[in-house]
Amino acid sequence: MRFAFSAEQRQFGTSLDDLLSDVDVESAARRWAAGEHEPGLKLWWRLAEIGVPALAVPEHRDGLGAGAVDVALAFERLGYHGVPGPWVDTAAVLPALLDDELLAGVAAGETLASLRWDPHVPYALDADVADTRIAVEDGTLRVFTPGRRLSSVAQARRLFGSTVGDAIATCADTGRAFDWGVLATSAQLLGAGRWLLERSVEYARQRRQYGRAIGEYQAIKHLLADVATRLELAEPLLYGAAVAMAAGGKNVENLGRGHLARDVSAAKVAAADAAYLAARTGLQVHGAIGYTAEHPLGRWLATVRALAGAWGTQAFHRRRVLGAVTAGRRSR
């Protein structure tokens, strides 16, 4: 057993960080929110150059056929840097939903997808910029037409109502595709939580009140230590779920019976709770400046709130975990 990133995976994470630190993601996200997609699409294409949307696409569709751990790692960095766009729909879920030549377009960064998946994903993300629009109903994939634009708390998440149309394909294992969405969203949440913690620590080190850095006060220290603890313990759940996904949800661990739905749901519960705590704590540590529209903190706080309810609510995922861990036990 080796439960850690490989040197190549660490290197991949670093190159993603380098790329995303080099670009003005903040401005791209703000313009994306205003419906100006160009800088965000350029960023998408740059990420395609280093293979991000190709990771989950199988090799026979010109993808990289990488494992779920690499995908989760990439989505964690996307979440950390606040990259806008329908990444979960396109680069995590779609490749598991169908095996079609349009995946070559996904791998190349040319195809963007938007999904509707009732009841958990009722609003289609970025349906205006996506060229592939699919509604999943049980095992049937249908096209949909975007309708009215809805206003999300996270402004860069451009959501749309939709009208479902003709069936175009079937999918034998939609459950696994859905779990890809849960996994990728959990990874974004963990990344967003880490961004919030790091910015809050930086702020607590430089902001001075009563003659000393506020980070010297134990009241602040303990808040941030709790966030760090929650994030540290959410991370292994995320990557444990990725390991289970990579094994196709079979009994990966001779440590215990691997269970994909259980593991991705546990990851989502922990990542969303930890990221939300990071957001609330981050706002409290920043004080009034964090409550302004100019400060980036609010964008991550809003994203975390939005993602916490995306691809299954916390209550849904807790029910799934409970169902899995109580299965086969004697009840009263």
Partner: peptide
């Protein structure tokens, strides 16, 4: 728990050591 959180804050997060 309080001492441990100080340790997490100072040694893991790099917050300044306080009184």
């Amino acid at each position: 728990d309080q001492i441990q959180r100080n340790t997490v804050a100072e040694r893991l997060l790099g917050l300044p050591r306080g009184p």
